[in-house]
């Protein structure tokens, strides 16, 4: 149960951090904010990597699901970061 309390604490505090920061993002950058958050939500790739990496308890099915998850998450990561960069470059130049 201790583990759960720690995780919940982190969860709640991170939401507060998120709200504080995101509220300061100007409307001009809302689209890059969304594609950027798409990119970082690709962090689920770390779970996918462990499922796809074939540890001692994996089965053929869980490996397949893991690989599919790696594919989806990396579309988010690469697509998200690159398209965000492309948009932000347009905002940068005058």
């Amino acid at each position: 149960m201790d583990m759960l309390i720690i995780s919940l604490t982190i969860f709640v505090l991170a939401i507060f951090v998120g709200v504080e920061i995101i509220n300061k993002v100007p409307p001009t950058l809302h689209t890059p904010l969304m594609s950027g958050s798409n990119a970082i939500s690709g962090i689920v790739v770390v779970g996918a990597i462990i499922s796809a990496g074939g540890g001692e308890h994996t089965t053929a099915l869980s490996t397949i699901l893991g690989v599919l998850a790696v594919i989806l998450a990396s579309i988010n990561i690469f697509g998200g970061f690159f398209v965000t960069n492309r948009m932000l470059q347009m905002f940068k130049k005058k």
Partner: peptide, 19 residues
């Protein structure tokens, strides 16, 4: 039990809710 995922998930969750 991955805190990195929890933190990132809540940041994205908060961002979407605010928008």
């Amino acid at each position: 039990h991955n805190n990195g995922l929890i933190i990132t998930g809540s940041l994205v969750g908060a961002s979407g809710i605010i928008l």
